[in-house]
C-alpha cells in the first residue's frame, strides 16, 4: 500500500479494514502487507484519496 504524503492519519482506513491490518500512529500508518487480501476497502474509504494499492 502506498500512503500519499497528504495522509492525515485519521484512521478511517483502519476502522473499515476487515482484517485489522492497519495501525494508525500520530503521524504514520503501518500496514501488515503479508496478510492483506487486496480488498481495497481502505483505499475507497479514505476521505482524501491518500491510499493507493502499489505493485507487489
Amino acid at each position: 500500500m502506498i500512503v500519499k504524503e497528504w495522509c492525515m492519519y485519521c484512521g478511517e482506513c483502519a476502522g473499515v479494514c476487515p482484517r485489522n491490518l492497519i495501525e494508525v500512529r500520530e503521524i504514520s500508518l503501518n500496514f501488515n502487507k503479508e496478510e492483506c487480501k487486496d480488498c481495497r476497502i481502505c483505499v475507497k474509504a479514505c476521505p482524501v484519496q491518500a491510499l493507493e494499492k502499489g505493485d507487489d
Binding site: G11, E12, C13, A14, V16, P18, N20, E23, V24, A45
Partner: peptide, 17 residues
Amino acid sequence: PESRVGRWAGLRTSLKP
C-alpha cells in the same frame, strides 16, 4: 472508530463501509 483494542480482545469492532 479505528479501534484495535476491541479487536485484540476478540470483539468485532470493524465496520462495514
